[in-house]
């Protein structure tokens, strides 16, 4: 469904993407996890036709986004990181315009808008100007706007960034429902919990390179089951252990404040890159 080979991009001296290879299967929910500046947004921008690549190929459903942009874009929906809705226009007008940008016939647009607003429980907000919506409502609207033209692939660039935990979980349930209906989802995030909860497979990206790709549970299992966090000279150290007993024994040997917790993707990311994924879910 999505095939990326040798993708490169440079901004001046900065190598944003340094030869990325990835494949995402039809109907998969794939997460790209990495810290800010790792290259996540650049990848999404290239795959959705917003940014030109320097090298490599991106095939979306067999179509090259650079060679056949119009046909490829029809298969793709984009939920951007920034809420880029027309705030002066109503909820209905925002969706209707999107439908027009994708050449949907009038009757289809009307039916689809009613369907989508009901889907995200905004049916009573159709005539409300977007500026009057809450942050969570705007995010939901942003998601269904990307679904308006029935894309087979949905790119979501940090879809829950800046949202509180309750709204984030609501958005997650919507994302899961969309994937459950057969849409391929490519999600970028720097929230560990988001990737763990949603993704069938996760790719770690760091400094424009894909470090590893696997199922979240396998990535975690590679590290062990339990982790011990402790401070050494005010610097946080983490060690991973195969079972809780081993973790407890290690914790007992450490002076000062110690935390025993489950191993997560952050530990796997840290082990593979030497860096932490910024931000917590």
């Amino acid at each position: 469904m999505i095939v990326i080979a040798g993708l490169t991009k440079k901004y001046g001296d900065l190598q944003a993407l340094a030869g990325v290879d990835l494949q995402v299967d039809r109907g998969e929910l794939f997460a790209l996890l990495g810290p800010n500046g790792a290259g996540k947004t650049t990848m999404v921008r290239i795959m959705t036709g917003l940014t030109r690549r320097d090298g490599g190929t991106v095939l979306l459903g067999g179509l090259d986004i650079a060679a056949q942009p119009a046909a490829a874009k029809r298969q793709v929906g984009l939920v951007p990181q920034v809420v880029n809705l027309d705030t002066e226009l109503t909820v209905y007008q925002n969706l209707d315009l999107h439908g027009r940008f994708f050449f949907m016939p009038a009757a289809d647009r009307r039916a689809r808008i009613a369907e989508l607003l009901a889907y995200v429980e905004l049916g009573d907000r159709a005539a409300t100007p977007v500026k009057q919506l809450s942050g969570g409502m705007k995010r939901r609207l942003l998601i269904v706007r990307a679904m308006m033209h029935r894309p087979g692939i949905l790119f979501m660039d940090e879809p829950t960034v800046g949202l509180d935990a309750a709204i984030r979980r609501r958005i997650w349930s919507i994302i899961r429902r969309i994937q459950g209906e057969g849409t391929t989802i490519f999600l970028t995030t720097h929230y560990i919990e988001e990737a763990e909860y949603l993704a069938g497979r996760v790719a770690f990206i760091d400094r424009g390179r894909i470090v590893t790709v696997d199922r979240p549970d396998r990535l975690v299992q590679r590290m062990g089951a339990w982790a011990v966090d402790y401070l050494v000279d005010n610097e946080l150290r983490t060690e991973c252990f195969p079972d809780r007993e081993a973790a407890r024994q290690a914790a007992a040997a450490v002076a000062g404040r110690v935390t025993i917790r489950r191993v997560n993707l952050e530990d796997a990311f840290l082990a593979l890159t030497g860096r932490k994924v910024a931000g917590e879910a």
Binding site: A70, D86, E88, R100, F103, A111, H149, R150
Partner: peptide
């Protein structure tokens, strides 16, 4: 529902009109 690619072929000006419509709505 079926794809809207066919609609795109019969409406070459649809994109311009959509952009125009957005500005007028604002």
């Amino acid at each position: 529902r079926p794809s809207t690619a066919a609609a795109a072929k019969v409406a070459p000006l649809a994109g311009s009109l959509a952009i125009f419509r957005r500005e007028m709505l604002i």
